[in-house]
């Protein structure tokens, strides 16, 4: 497979958030600011790349019937590694992301890639796939986080450009749903033009 295509498909064509609608809980939950979105995205990317790598490495040694439980153990281990490392070296980001870090383990994107891609492809393609999908996921989180931060707090990357409050509803939960809905419409439009 063409590795460049394999890498770039995650951004628009097979974007896990805007096109496949997978792993939406953290997408809505942590995107109150652009920086939280990026942090969550990168944590997920790390788990994706590592679990794709290990799954692809051991795919020939795991009997089919225990495939899913084995993948879950592998994913959960990398999630815990991220959890402990963030707690130690990035405690404030860890607090901001809260519950959603351990919940990476049930992010359908991660298990989905392990099952649909890494268990059938070689190690190198699997790593590229994890990286592409992960960064596509990060891109979506960053986009939604920026929109909500700009509209809701009147700032970007904590740099404030208006006095006082923004349109608060975008920081609150209804704004998350509505902003994501409109972003999907935008991506739909873009995809149409591209096609």
């Amino acid at each position: 497979m063409n590795q460049i295509k394999n890498f770039t498909k995650g951004f628009i064509k097979e974007n896990p958030v805007f096109v496949l609608f997978l792993g939406l809980c953290p997408v809505l939950g942590v995107t109150t600011s652009a920086i939280n979105g990026i942090g969550m995205g990168l944590a997920t990317t790390f788990v994706l790349v590592m679990s794709n790598f290990v799954v692809s490495l051991i795919k020939n040694f795991v009997p089919d019937k225990v495939r899913i439980p084995s993948f879950i153990v592998i994913i959960a281990s990398f999630v815990t590694i991220v959890e402990l490392t963030m707690q130690a070296y990035l405690p404030s980001l860890f607090e901001a992301l809260g519950l959603f870090i351990p919940l990476i383990v049930v992010n359908c994107v991660v298990l989905g890639r392990a099952e649909a891609f890494a268990s059938k492809n070689n190690i190198f393609s699997s790593i590229i796939d994890g990286l592409g999908i992960g960064l596509g996921f990060t891109f979506a989180l960053f986009l939604l986080g920026s929109v909500r931060e700009i509209l809701g707090s009147g700032s970007i990357f904590n740099f404030k450009f208006i006095e006082g409050d923004g349109i608060l509803i975008f920081i609150l939960s209804p704004g998350a749903f509505i902003a994501l809905g409109y972003l999907i419409v935008l991506v739909n439009k873009l995809k149409k033009k591209g096609a």
Partner: peptide, 21 residues
């Protein structure tokens, strides 16, 4: 058309969330 399916569902979910607020 571009709103059909999932996007409009999200907008509706937003309104429902607002009601729950």
């Amino acid at each position: 058309e571009p709103f059909r399916g999932v996007p409009i569902a999200f907008v509706v979910a937003g309104l429902l969330a607002m009601a729950f607020m």
